[in-house]
Design a protein around this nucleic acid. Structure first.
Lengths: 127, 127
DNA sequence: ATACTATATCGTGATATCCCGAAATATATA
DNA sequence: TATATATTTCGGGATATCACGATATAGTAT
């Protein structure tokens, strides 16, 4: 009754039963779980992407760098809202910025940011 | 003073000034913003990914399909918590499932799900 | 039917995020 | 210095998400 490898006939059991039963199966599963730092970093990126306005900002930045007030106009959102979004994108490493006079120009930090959007887009089609 | 193309000398202005000034610049920016459905769908995917446990679940599913109680053991999380995570992943179209006896086996719906994790992973390195 | 296992949903308090006005900071210009 | 524009940060109420026990549902076996 203890099949340890393929899940064609999965070995399942109550969690309470499980704790004092040192099966190697659980160790195997847990070895697949990545480290905390690893997971936390990914989580921060996905959290930054988990907002419609921030997705729109990145879409606009596909075309090149923009200052805050341009994004503000495009999104029709209050200035402080846009600034907060940009802060979050920056903290996650998705965008970078440079100062030019009184303006601050934002750009995508990495083409991977666009690829993330592309992949999410592609998921709609094939299923 | 009205540079409409490159942002080397960006045309910025207060939002209040802006509303009654129909510059084509704003229209251009807004044309870059994707449709609502488009953005909403991406947002749902990224929201589903914006959680450490759900990222861990997907990492485990790289190796093949698993039943709920296996994930429960690997994550050391209560059963209802894991079930709720799986629901969210399923609603976002990231995982699929099939019934086998009393078990329900979950698997990744699309390889794009793994690629999203890979891309997020890769972003740490180059910056 | 009864019992047992596996999974899903519900209800809810704790926590996090969102949105945005108000105030603070920074830079250029008169 | 005073003024105007651009941007960031702060404060806090509204809203959403989280984790999880309790409960419900479904399948299997006796």
């Amino acid at each position: 009754m203890m099949n340890t490898d393929t899940p064609s006939e999965p070995t399942c059991y109550g969690l309470n039963k499980l704790v004092d039963e040192p099966t190697e199966r659980i160790e195997t599963l847990q070895s697949l779980v990545p480290s905390n730092e690893d997971t936390e970093q990914k989580q921060e990126i996905f959290k930054a992407l988990a907002n419609e306005d921030r997705i729109r900002i990145l879409e606009i930045l596909r075309e090149g760098e923009r200052c805050v007030c341009e994004l503000q106009a495009a999104l029709e959102a209050p200035q402080s809202t846009v600034a907060t979004h940009l802060r979050k994108l920056k903290d996650a490493g998705l965008v970078k910025s440079r100062k030019q006079g009184t303006w601050r120009l934002y750009r995508t930090a990495d083409t991977a940011a666009f690829e993330l959007l592309n992949l999410a887009e592609a998921m709609r089609d094939d299923e």
